[in-house]
Design a protein around this nucleic acid. Structure first.
Length: 1114
RNA sequence: GGGGGGGUAGCUCAGUUGGUUAGAGCUCCGAGCUUAUAUCUCGGCGGUCCCUGGUUCGAUUCCAGGCCCCCCUACCA
């Protein structure tokens, strides 16, 4: 046995490595080390001045702790950035937080226990807005810490600074304080500093509530107004009564849920046809008091039916459905076309209510039947109850028909005055009262329960009502039927929609269907509703004069300050948010009257959409801007983003600069739980980010995410993490092996080794594979294909461990000649280092931990400061060798398969393997590797193995099937039974039909009972005859293995010497004593003795054999 | 309601320009290898290729109809 490590005590060693690493604590060590050594700052310094690679981070909503779903995107963001930095690019490293909007308000409301807008206003807007800001800072700090834990390298704010700003906002709002800015310490008031977060001076992460962000949005809105695209619209909109705001089309994502509602069949008595009524149906009974019209289809036919003493008009196809079980008793009295009903006047149950009478005249005089082509024959009664304030189509219809409107509820969903007993009641609970009223007036025919998809508020899940509201919109322009290419310049100039589409074409969308989805959204979207009747958000710079109606949109705070005639004092020292900005008045440019800002705040996607301009210093630094715009990449989870961030980014960039904000959009799916369902705490399948980081580790999480298919949803959980960890553990064990043996042999990096070209085939092979790894992964990552990169890396880890190292293990032992051993160490070291560098962007902590020990030069820092290893692998590629080796590997698989089928264990040596390599015979060195792997004395390459096979003629069906038709089965049967006549020139005749050589294939099928396997163009046959020598060698190996196993169980270390005792019956193994002592680390072997203190027995060729050993001294 | 994708082993998914015997990974079982490895190797179990009809010598694949799931989209009463 080699003396272990005796030289290691003289030389500096690698730190010893445990084969079972604690990945979590390793990660914490690396994070601490990066922080202590300023590794990230060194990388930035190193890449400064490089060719820019511009990444634009989509802002994460700073409203809650990060979830594991964020970790997927952040893994991509970080790995592509790290990869680009290793290529030498300069990066901006700016990360962003989304800060404004209803989602923050909702959480603050919850914390305060508030449930309505009135309560917020009573409490005071100033405090509410401050709490919103503070919540954002709280979670920005938290998410910063979590992102750092994930190993994400960005130019982070010190979380402690963010929390100090947060606290100062309420504790000492007037006092100046200092935080660490981009270029050192920056001083200012808390509100002032907060407003400048992300700016060049204060740095570093951007916050969408920043002054610059808000100000640039103002200039965007002013530009839209200048082009005539900004307008105030009046419409009936989905409305959340809890939030007190309209819900825009952008926000309807996931806004639908099943809901049980009462539906009503109810009658409208006709004025001019006494005793007859119209039968209508609705699923929203709360809108019945607001009825103004009944719509019929002009082309459908309607019947007057007599039923239970009533005479009712019903759509002809709806009679049975409307009347339910009693329908057969109904008698049809009369039939009319829908168009004949138009104009009929009718009465309704709530006509006497003051609000209804005020709108419709006494007795609801204005009620009439109108014609509407969209009325269908499949639902209800084909007579549609129309309430213009309660649906956008109803609203449009009533404008065309010149009908009055009744708006029954206020912004909180409460019935207004003038609806008798309904007034003051919530819209969600009035249904019962309405049914009572319908019942009493004799109108109600039937009520049912139905389950239907109904819109809900995406934030608070309250069912949405419809309300008539004034909101502000950006016009998307007309849509045309003709293809886009045929639009005139004027048509395009007037339509933002088509301008954005042209920009979409300039972007590379990954996956490619993103392009079509974005265009589809643009084609179909209606105008962009940008206002919200809320508090925390962009203050819309819209000034509408109450006196003359003139509308002005201001383009900056400076402009506002120039125009202000009152209220500037209130705004001074504050960010442009409510309530302070509301105090400022300007003079109307048209009539001179004093004008107040509209109270609305902006749609939050304005905030995120401006960042390609605001964070890239569009206004403040044109040189910088040109260097970084457009971005090379944005990447976000695509559900929802086509209508949200992607859309707003595109729209705002198109309006402001007329070009694409990014060259590539890389989208990915959603994170689901391992059971394939969405993660829900209440379902017990949810995993928190912190929990995942602490239990599976960030690198494992990153590996799992990076290896997932981006276009599919990823199923995230502990099992998947285990799989990823197993791959990384194999890598770790290659490393542990390397360190263990290098310490033992006293090997150090940079020692003597042969030039690569002079090394053995195994060494040249793994280095060639490594060169391929580098170029394959580089190509994949340049294409944003992390999945392929991970797959290639996993294959590389497998090759390195299970082929290179397993086959080369002996060469690292001290018994191997030093020159060869050094080559082996050098090769393993180079291959491993290169692999680590390629894997570093994906698993940055684990790879750096290994790297720093492996270079045994920890002082020089980090794997992340190394350039992409393209240059190092120059000249390593040897395609011919790789081809040969892959056939050798395949032959080894076939050989193992033969052994398995023949039930000959691998430890039993065999004399010969005959191999048909199906190509050039591999080099003798490779044949030796194969012989060793298969435990055969010799490998013989043969070209003709006809003795092993039967010839079978295979008819190529795709070629001859059509021609043969129904004779096919007979031909196949004959071919199967071998009833085939071989003709000259390779043709054959079967059942009298001739087949050309290219219509058949002559197959070699191994003969039954032969020890043969074939596949992939290779054939392997093993010679299974055993000689006494072979049997004895097999026994020796079997015995060695058993002794080794017992050594391990007895707790002996490698190198602990033993004295081995064998029974007299094993005397036949005496010629192999030397080999045996070598392999089991024995000082001596005695036959016919049982003096050991540890014993076991095994079955050898000559029978059960008991053996024992004792640890011997020294 | 409209548009798109899908239904293949217990699970996650490939694949089939129509062709004789439909694959991989994970799980399970058996065997093998191994003092770097929780690794690895060989094999086995496991299938109505959603259902029905049509075209065809032949359909999991093409066509029609139906059922179910997912995504996008939609204020249909």
């Amino acid at each position: 046995m080699p003396c272990r490590g005796w030289r290691g005590t003289l030389l500096s060693m690698f730190n010893p490595v445990d084969s079972k690493p604690d990945l979590i604590s390793l990660e914490h060590q690396m994070l601490a080390r990066w922080r202590a050594e300023g590794t990230f700052e060194r990388l930035r310094a190193q890449t400064a001045g490089g060719e820019p690679w511009s990444f634009l981070d989509g802002p994460i909503t700073a409203n809650n702790p990060m979830g594991v779903h964020h970790a997927w995107g952040r893994t991509y963001k970080d790995l592509f950035q790290r990869f680009r930095a290793s290529l030498g690019h300069e990066l901006r490293w700016q990360q962003g937080f989304d800060c404004q909007g209803l989602w923050v308000e909702v959480n603050v409301e919850k914390e305060l226990g508030l449930t309505s807008k009135r309560q917020i206003e009573e409490r005071g807007l100033a405090e509410f807005i401050r709490l919103c800001k503070q919540r954002v800072l709280t979670y920005a700090a938290r998410q910063t810490e979590q992102s750092i834990r994930l190993g994400m390298w960005m130019d982070w704010n010190d979380p402690a600074d963010l929390l100090r700003l947060r606290d100062a906002l309420s504790d000492a709002p007037e006092r100046e304080l200092a935080i660490t800015g981009a270029g050192g310490e920056v001083r200012g008031t808390p509100e002032g500093l907060i407003g400048q977060l992300g700016s060049p001076e204060v740095g570093v992460s951007y916050f969408t509530f920043s002054d610059e962000n808000n100000d640039l949005i103002w200039s965007f809105l002013a530009e839209c107004n200048r082009r005539g695209w900004l307008y105030k619209g009046s419409d009936s909109m989905p409305w959340c009564t809890r939030c007190g705001t309209g819900i825009s089309q952008h926000e309807m994502t996931e806004g639908y849920a099943d809901r049980d509602d009462p539906s009503a069949y109810f009658g409208f008595p006709l004025v001019d046809r006494p005793g007859e009524e119209l039968l209508a149906w609705t699923t929203t009974p709360w809108t019945i008091p607001a009825n103004v019209a009944a719509a019929v289809s002009p082309t459908l036919s309607y019947e007057l039916v007599e039923f239970e003493g009533r005479k009712m008009w019903i759509g002809a196809t709806r009679r049975v459905a409307a009347l339910g079980g009693g329908a057969p008793r109904a008698k049809v009295l009369e039939t009319k076309q829908g168009s004949e009903l138009v104009g009929w006047r009718y009465r309704a149950t709530f006509d006497a209510a003051p609000a209804v009478a005020a709108a419709l005249g006494p007795d609801g005089a204005a009620h009439r039947v109108i014609s509407w082509s969209d009325v269908g024959a499949e639902e209800g009664t084909s007579i549609v109850h129309i309430a213009p304030a309660c649906g956008s189509e109803d609203h449009a219809l009533c404008i065309t028909e010149g009908l009055p409107m009744i708006a029954p509820i206020d912004e909180g969903g409460t019935y207004l005055e003038g609806f008798n007993e309904l007034s003051g009641k919530d819209w969600l609970v009035v249904a019962d009262l309405i049914f009572v009223a319908l019942e009493q007036s004799g109108s109600l025919l039937r009520r049912e329960k139905i389950t239907h998809r109904y819109p809900h508020c995406w934030r608070c899940a309250t069912p949405l009502a419809f309300r008539l509201v004034d909101e502000w919109f950006i016009s998307m322009g007309a849509t045309y039927e003709k293809p886009r290419a045929q639009l005139s310049a004027a048509e395009k100039a007037g339509s933002l929609r088509y301008q954005i589409m042209d920009v979409v074409d300039n972007i590379s969308w990954l996956p490619s269907f993103g392009h079509d989805r974005e265009l589809d959204w643009l084609r179909n979207m209606s105008d962009w509703m940008i206002s919200k009747k809320r508090y925390w958000g962009l203050a819309l710079p819209i000034y509408e004069c109450e006196g003359c109606g003139a509308v002005e949109v201001l383009g900056s705070r400076a402009e506002l300050e120039g125009r202000a005639v009152a209220g500037l004092d209130a705004l001074a020292g504050h960010s442009p948010h409510r309530p302070y900005i509301d105090e400022v008045r300007i003079a109307c440019a048209k009539c001179g009257g004093e004008v107040q800002r509209v109270p609305d705040v902006g749609n939050p996607w304005l905030d995120a959409g401006i960042v390609s301009l605001s964070t890239m210093r569009y206004r403040s630094d044109p040189e910088y801007w040109k260097r970084w715009f457009p971005a090379d990449l944005i990447t976000e989870s695509f559900p929802g983003q086509f209508r949200n961030w992607f859309y707003s980014l595109l729209a705002m960039s198109t309006v402001m600069v007329g070009s694409e904000p990014t060259k590539t959009v890389f989208g990915y799916g959603l994170v689901f739980a391992e059971d394939g369902r969405q993660m829900h705490k209440s379902w017990g399948n949810s995993i928190e980010f912190d929990e995942a980081a602490d239990r599976m580790g960030a690198d494992v999480m990153r590996w799992l995410f990076a290896g997932s298919r981006p276009e599919e949803n990823v199923h995230f959980g502990w099992n998947g993490a285990d799989e990823a960890r197993r791959k990384l553990l194999v890598l770790w064990n290659v490393y542990a092996f390397h360190i263990g043996y290098a310490n033992s042999a006293g090997w150090r990096p940079g020692g003597v080794a042969s030039p690569v070209a002079d090394r053995g085939a195994m060494d040249r092979w793994i280095l060639s594979r490594t060169a391929d790894l580098v170029s394959t992964v580089e190509g994949a990552l340049r294409n944003y294909d992390a999945q392929s990169a991970v797959a290639r890396l996993e294959a590389a880890i497998d090759e390195l461990s299970t082929w290179y190292l397993r086959r080369s293990r002996d060469r690292f032992d001290l018994s191997t000649a030093e020159a060869d051993r050094n080559d082996a160490f050098a090769t393993l070291h180079e291959a491993l280092l290169t692999l680590l560098q390629v894997a570093a962007p994906i698993a940055p902590m684990l790879t750096d931990a290994i790297y720093t020990n492996l270079v045994a030069d920890g002082a020089t820092g980090s794997i992340h400061l190394q350039p992409w290893p393209k240059a190092r692998v120059q000249g390593w590629r040897d395609q011919a060798l790789e081809d040969s080796m892959s056939r050798v590997i395949r032959a080894a698989e076939l050989g193992r398969s033969v052994r398995s089928a023949a039930a000959i264990r691998t430890r039993q040596p065999l004399a010969l393997a005959r191999v048909v390599f199906g190509g050039e015979t591999p080099h003798a060195e490779l044949l030796e590797i194969l012989a060793d792997e298969l435990n055969v004395k010799r490998v013989e390459s043969v070209t003709d193995a006809s003795g092993l096979f039967e010839r079978k003629v295979k008819v190529l069906l795709p070629k001859v099937g059509k021609r043969l038709g129904d004779k096919l089965q007979a031909v196949l049967a004959a071919a199967r039974s071998g009833d085939v006549e071989l003709l000259a020139g390779g043709a054959v005749r079967i059942v009298g039909l001739e087949f050309a050589p290219d219509e058949i294939e002559i197959q070699a099928i191994p003969r039954e009972g032969g020890f043969v396997a074939e596949g992939g163009g290779l054939v392997v046959e093993l010679e299974t005859a055993l000689t006494p020598e072979l049997i004895a060698e097999g026994d020796v190996r079997e015995l060695s293995r058993a002794v080794q196993d017992l050594r391990k169980r007895a707790g002996l270390q490698i190198g602990d010497p033993i004295s081995l005792y064998l029974p007299e019956s094993a005397r036949s193994l005496a010629p192999y004593t030397e080999q045996l002592t070598q392999s089991v680390g024995a000082r001596s072997i005695e036959f016919g003795a049982t003096a050991g203190d540890v014993a076991d027995q095994i079955e050898l060729s000559f029978g059960d054999t008991a053996f024992s050993f004792r640890r011997s001294a020294g």
